[in-house]
Computed example of a mutant assay.
Amino acid sequence: MNVLAIDTATEACSVAASIGGVWAERFVELGRGHTDALMPMIHAVMAELEADLGVLDCIAVGRGPGAFTGVRIGVACVQGLAHGLNVPVVPVSNLAAMAWEAASEQGAWVAVAIDARAGGVYFGAYAVTPSALPECVVAERVCPPDAVPALDQRSVLTAGTGWSRHPEVLGAAVGCEQVDSGVRLPSARAIAELALLGAAQLPASELEPVYLRDQVVHSSARKA
């Protein structure tokens, strides 16, 4: 299967493609400017593979959680491309993609925390085994770092910028030994790999961003 993947949900902007089993990818950290950078990166990746977008069987995207604007940019770009090419889309959790990148070779539990600003983190925990989609064992959420649930493991791998920003608070919350995987931000390569592993495909019209912050807004409204 030929797949293109993009991710703009965090400060990273990344693109990866696998055409006939040959890979090309681009990854850059940007404060802003994802919109301007994205299409040139897509064209560069496809040019490196000497392939046209018309050979794609699907397009995968980091569907969030992440920054509102960043998630929206990626989803809108993929919807437009997929509509034009008449191919399905593959929405992939950014947290699951990071867990996969951290532990796809050896397998492990991975606690992923992305800095969500305003003192919070996007958090999820996954059981990762080689050659299988990551299993979400702690539901994705946005919360203060001290509200992350404890994990019933002797040790876990960690991934994400939340761990470098709140290491002591997150460490105390999960309540077990942590081993840094070195994965800080999601990558389009990991998203593409999960698409190739069998992550669910959808028509482009059904693609929706996942912000998680909606949960906080709705919860606050109910309390009011």
Rank of each mutant, 00 (worst) to 15 (best):
R63E: 07
H43E: 14
V55G: 00
S205M: 15
I6S: 02
M1K: 04
A44D: 13
D7R: 00
L53A: 11
A103H: 07
V183C: 00
E105F: 10
A224Q: 14
Q79R: 15
K223C: 12
D7I: 00
A12E: 04
A76W: 05
P130L: 14
E140S: 03
A204K: 13
D52G: 05
A51S: 07
S187W: 04
S131M: 12
E48F: 06
G33S: 13
A118V: 15
A132G: 11
A159N: 09
A192I: 00
E29G: 14
A47C: 15
I19C: 01
T10A: 04
G74D: 13
L196A: 04
E208W: 10
P145H: 14
A118E: 11
M98F: 05
E193A: 10
A224H: 11
M98L: 01
A127C: 14
V87E: 00
V90Y: 05
L202T: 01
A192T: 08
L56W: 03
Y122W: 06
P149H: 15
T161F: 05
D115L: 00
E48S: 14
T158A: 07
L196N: 02
A12I: 02
A24K: 04
G162N: 05
T10E: 01
A67S: 10
A67E: 08
E140R: 05
C143H: 06
V75G: 05
D7W: 06
C77D: 14
A5G: 04
A76R: 14
E25Q: 13
A172C: 14
V174H: 03
S104K: 00
Q106H: 03
L207Y: 05
